[in-house]
Simulated scan of single mutants.
Amino acid sequence: MEGPVAPVAVVTGAGQGIGLATARLLAQSGYRTVLAGRDRAKLDAAAAAVPGPALAVAADLTVPAQVEELFATVEDTWAPAEVLVANAGTSLAAPITRTTDAQWQQMLDTNLTAPFRCIRRALPPMLEARRGRIVVIASVVAKRGERQVSAYTASKHGVLGLVRAVADEVARHGVTANAVCPGYVDTPMTDATVAAIAERTGTTPAEARAVLERRQPIHRLVQPEEVAAAVLSCVQNGAINGQGINVDGGAVQS
């Protein structure tokens, strides 16, 4: 006799870093995991590294039709998502006076509008089932301003506001929405930040990385698995709702 079917979790930006660590942890916790992102080769490799059933779906989430295609594929292949982890994002460093309209729009499209569309599409089946978890990977700059990253900071402030509004709207229907707000994490995105700092300041990559490490009281970069653990706590605990949970070694206290 077959046992119960495992619930489905969709993780965006799952080809590497926080997304991959989260997909692995959700799989270990009994979820069928959907790994979404732009790079098919990375997704296939990531899916192969995930224990248990894993489905790789290539999608550019800044394109509305591809958001619909992602969730339709998940539902046709398995079932509606019970968990959505909106992790896909991008960063940009530039003085505000040198931030172009195109760069500003890129930050909003990827870090704010794409999660909005994913949440909007994932919610109806969750509300119907009266069960669901939404977690957005934001940033500590969702809670503070920081020089050189005005567009990125604005997009992350926006997505935290989105999460809080959604949380209040759906709480009475068995669905929760939270944000996890990491500091500097040891990921390829941070590697790019390190390279940009080194180039801008004339330092070595090691020196630039040390600068980021010192910005956090623990004097090291956060590990992707530490962020994933915070995501899992939001998934497992239905009393956590509308929160922006800092995973930054104590850099921002709230």
Rank of each mutant, 00 (worst) to 15 (best):
R24Q: 07
A230L: 08
S233I: 12
L160P: 07
I18C: 03
Y31I: 01
Y184C: 00
Y184D: 03
Q66R: 14
G17V: 07
C234L: 07
A65S: 15
E169T: 07
D109E: 14
Q236V: 00
A41M: 07
D191T: 08
A239K: 09
A27L: 02
A58Q: 07
D101S: 09
A49W: 13
A9F: 11
A206R: 13
E213T: 00
D60I: 08
V163W: 15
D44G: 00
P80L: 05
V136W: 06
L43T: 05
T113F: 10
V74Q: 07
T201Y: 15
I18R: 03
A88V: 09
V235Q: 03
A48I: 03
L70P: 01
T73K: 06
G158A: 10
R172T: 06
F116I: 04
S155E: 02
A59P: 00
R98D: 13
R130W: 12
G183W: 07
A229G: 01
V140H: 05
T193M: 14
G174R: 10
R215H: 13
E169G: 04
A154N: 02
A59H: 06
A171R: 12
R38Y: 14
T203V: 12
T176E: 03
A192V: 12
V50Y: 01
S254D: 05
I96A: 15
I119L: 02
L108E: 01
L61T: 08
L25Q: 06
L20W: 12
A45L: 13
C118F: 04
P53G: 05
V231T: 08
L20Y: 13
V85F: 13
N87M: 07
R214K: 15
L108W: 10
E75S: 11
V5S: 06
P188R: 09
A54D: 03
E207A: 15
V11I: 09
T77C: 04
P4T: 13
V163K: 14
P205K: 09
Q216I: 11
T99Y: 12
D186K: 10
V83Q: 06
M189H: 03
L26W: 08
A65K: 13
A129H: 04
P53Q: 13
G37F: 13
Y152A: 04
L127D: 03
Y152I: 08
Q16R: 15
A154W: 11
A122N: 03
I134Y: 00
E226F: 05
L70T: 01
D186N: 10
